[in-house]
Amino acid sequence: MSKKTILTSAVTGAGDTTKKSPYVPVTPEEIAKSAIDAAKAGATIAHIHVRDPKTGGISHDPALFREVVARIRESETDVIINLTSGGGGDWIPSEEDPTVGGPGTDMQTPEERHEPIGELLPEICTLDCGSVNFGDQLYVSTTDWLRRQAKLIQQSGVKPELECFDTGHLRFANQLIKEGLIDGDPMFQFCLGIPWGADADAETMLYMRDRLPKNAHWSAFGIGRMQLPVAVQSLLLGGNMRVGLEDNLYLDKGVMATNAQLVEKAVTAMSSLGVAPMTPAEARVHLGLKNPS
């Protein structure tokens, strides 16, 4: 096989999925092990959130990120670490007073979102490039906040993965590039099929791909049953691939998956098209990443 592509495993996410599947990792030990298992199955990159070990719910605790990263780096399995920096953006207006956040609201400043990135210096971190109606809540990431956060990421030397949940996010990501806030060849992730963002279909993917800078690297993911179709469509259109329990819990209809199994399924699909996953070492060169600390 001469053609290679980057395969990301998004191992846990922040959604309310731990009650739906026993395979969603929760503790730092479980998250690190799942990332390592995914890497052994063929994943190039592990995209990582952390969870409250007691509740399984969302957490932004730098100590939890610290433990996950340490466990991965101390293992004998190489994988590129991609930490989320999109936490703390959930806004649900209070029924009594819509000017304040109600139950479920979880907000952080750009500096707070960046804290684990600045401390741990992963090779990649996400940058969610705009606000969006995310299901029944609003995800808040204003343009001024994004400029501040992009500058912090730039100063840290970490490569941002520009996450675009809608077409306007892509427009603003390109604006960040024009303003000199993104170094090197930019890296985009199209986040498709999430209510109420961009659709998970080929037309939307083509629209977004055709508006990228010529030197951009890109990938796309879909959620639920659209995970593998979107990943394969991304590959066919010249992009990279992402799978994982953050986006989809099932291997087949009614069959719960592990992250490693989802990676294996993606690798099989890639192989049928004459493509293999890049190794982390190959991807570091391809993306112009710094070596892990």
Score class of each variant (00 low, 15 high):
Arg73Trp: 10
Arg73Thr: 02
Glu74Arg: 09
Glu74His: 05
Glu74Asn: 15
Glu74Lys: 14
Glu74Ile: 00
Ser75Tyr: 06
Ser75Phe: 03
Ser75Ile: 04
Ser75Asn: 09
Ser75Ala: 08
Ser75Cys: 07
Ser75Met: 05
Glu76Ile: 00
Glu76Pro: 00
Glu76Gly: 15
Glu76Thr: 07
Glu76Arg: 10
Glu76His: 06
Thr77Arg: 08
Thr77Asn: 02
Thr77Cys: 02
Thr77Gln: 11
Thr77Ala: 03
Asp78Ala: 13
Asp78Ile: 02
Val79Pro: 11
Val79Phe: 08
Ile80Trp: 07
Ile81His: 06
Ile81Arg: 04
Ile81Tyr: 02
Ile81Glu: 00
Asn82Thr: 00
Asn82Val: 00
Asn82Met: 13
Asn82His: 13
Asn82Pro: 02
Asn82Gly: 01
Asn82Lys: 09
Leu83Phe: 09
Leu83Asp: 03
Leu83Gln: 04
Thr84Trp: 03
Thr84Ala: 11
Thr84Lys: 08
Ser85Met: 05
Ser85Thr: 13
Ser85Val: 06
Ser85His: 04
Ser85Arg: 05
Gly86His: 03
Gly86Cys: 09
Gly86Leu: 08
Gly86Val: 11
Gly87His: 14
Gly87Met: 15
Gly87Thr: 15
Gly87Asp: 13
Gly87Lys: 14
Gly88Asn: 10
Gly88His: 03
Gly88Asp: 09
Gly88Thr: 02
Gly88Met: 06
Gly88Phe: 04
Gly88Pro: 05
Gly88Lys: 10
Gly88Glu: 03
Gly88Ser: 10
Gly88Ile: 02
Gly89Pro: 04
Gly89Asn: 09
Gly89Gln: 09
Gly89Asp: 11
Gly89Thr: 13
Asp90His: 06
Asp90Ala: 14
Asp90Asn: 14
Asp90Leu: 14
Asp90Cys: 01
Asp90Gln: 14
Trp91Val: 14
Trp91Phe: 15
Trp91Arg: 00
Trp91Lys: 04
Ile92Ala: 10
Ile92His: 02
Ile92Val: 15
Ile92Leu: 13
Ile92Ser: 11
Ile92Gly: 03
Ile92Cys: 02
Pro93Asp: 05
Pro93Thr: 14
Pro93His: 11
Pro93Met: 06
Pro93Gln: 09
Pro93Ser: 04
Pro93Glu: 05
Ser94Met: 03
Ser94Pro: 01
Ser94Lys: 13
Ser94Ala: 12
Ser94Glu: 00
Ser94Asn: 11
Glu95Trp: 03
Glu95Phe: 09
Glu95Asp: 11
Glu95Lys: 15
Glu95Ile: 06
Glu96Trp: 01
Glu96Lys: 15
Glu96Ile: 07
Glu96Gln: 14
Asp97Arg: 14
Asp97Asn: 15
Asp97Lys: 12
Asp97Gln: 11
Pro98Tyr: 04
Pro98Met: 08
Pro98His: 06
Pro98Ser: 12
Pro98Leu: 10
Thr99Gly: 08
Thr99Asp: 12
Val100Thr: 15
Val100Cys: 12
Val100Tyr: 06
Gly101Asn: 08
Gly101Ala: 04
Gly101Leu: 03
Gly101Gln: 10
Gly102Thr: 08
Gly102Pro: 04
Gly102Met: 07
Pro103Leu: 07
Pro103Cys: 04
Pro103Tyr: 06
Pro103Lys: 14
Pro103Glu: 11
Pro103Met: 00
Pro103Ala: 13
Pro103Arg: 13
Gly104Leu: 03
Gly104Glu: 03
Gly104Cys: 06
Thr105Val: 08
Thr105Ile: 10
Thr105Asn: 03
Thr105Asp: 05
Thr105Gly: 05
Asp106Phe: 12
Asp106His: 05
Asp106Val: 07
Asp106Asn: 10
Asp106Ser: 02
Asp106Pro: 00
Met107Ser: 01
